[in-house]
């Protein structure tokens, strides 16, 4: 290795670490912006429930249409930041797995899918708020469609968390990339995401789309998971990579 190569590799790893740090913060930022948009502005945490009547739902959209649309625009912008966050996770998973990193690759693909799963129902809610009174029955059913879609697709995020958990628990480095508790926390998060999948089976109670299990547990687990993964990226994985501490056990 010439002196020039050493300088180049140091320079590029420095930039990579700085970018990764920024991308890890994207996860936290994404969560905060999502909550500001959906909760503080749109008032859609949770969205109006499935036991509400047609008149009530149409009234929500007619009275708060602008707020709902604007809040969801903010939320969509925030969710986009899950992209870089997912990529950083994939880079760090690849350090566990080695050059051909099947878990990291799949995790990244699923992360991209997750963003779309936020975008599409958000756009449907925006459309419901667009002309709510022209066809009230349609507004009512569009609200069903958007809310069911938003809550019913936890599968990709759950598998993402499971793949991360597998990589963490397989890690054989003396200085592991992620702490092992994050693997177990990811498994808990994955299980906790799933009840939402069943939301279309009930209009009231814990698995309705605004219920304790389907909505609140899913949201809380998602928040905890994003914060915990970001924390471990910033405290463990990225600094250790930068310091070159990840030596494979002989």
């Amino acid at each position: 290795m010439t002196e020039n190569d050493v300088v180049n590799s140091c320079a590029s790893s420095g930039a990579s670490a700085a970018n990764q740090r920024l991308m890890a913060y994207c996860g936290v930022t994404s969560l905060v912006v999502l909550l500001i948009g959906m909760w503080a502005i749109a008032g859609f945490v949770p969205p109006p429930g499935p036991n509400k009547s047609l008149e009530e739902i149409v009234a929500v959209y007619a009275d708060h249409g602008a707020r709902i649309r604007f809040g969801l625009i903010v939320a969509c912008a925030g969710v986009t930041l899950l992209g870089p966050w997912t990529a950083t996770i994939a880079i760090q998973m690849r350090r566990v797995e080695g050059e051909f990193a099947p878990l990291a690759l799949t995790q990244a693909m699923l992360g991209a899918v997750l963003i779309v799963e936020f975008y599409v129902p958000s756009a449907m809610w925006m459309a419901a708020a667009f002309r709510p009174e022209v066809d009230p029955a349609f507004t009512y059913r569009l609200h069903d469609l958007a809310s069911i879609t938003f809550v019913a697709l936890p599968w990709s995020a759950a598998l993402q968390a499971i793949l991360l958990a597998i990589a963490i628990l397989q890690d054989k480095h003396d200085q592991p990339v992620f702490p092992r508790w994050l693997g177990y926390l990811s498994l808990w998060a994955a299980i906790s995401f799933l009840p939402g999948a069943f939301n279309s089976l009930a209009k009231t109670g814990v698995i309705a789309w605004n219920g304790v299990l389907a909505w609140w547990l899913g949201l809380i687990a998602f928040g905890i998971w994003i914060l915990a993964v970001s924390f471990c990226l910033l405290r463990d994985a990225i600094p250790h990579q930068e310091a070159g501490q990840a030596q494979v056990r002989p």
């Binding site: 702490p179 508790w181 994050l182 177990y184 926390l185 808990w188 906790s192 304790v212 547990l217």
Partner: peptide, 19 residues
């Protein structure tokens, strides 16, 4: 077990307790 597993176990039991 290892300490980390209790994150999963207590997390899960908390969810069931709420239910």
């Amino acid at each position: 077990g290892e300490p980390g597993i209790w994150v999963l176990l207590f997390g899960d039991m908390l969810v069931f307790t709420v239910l």
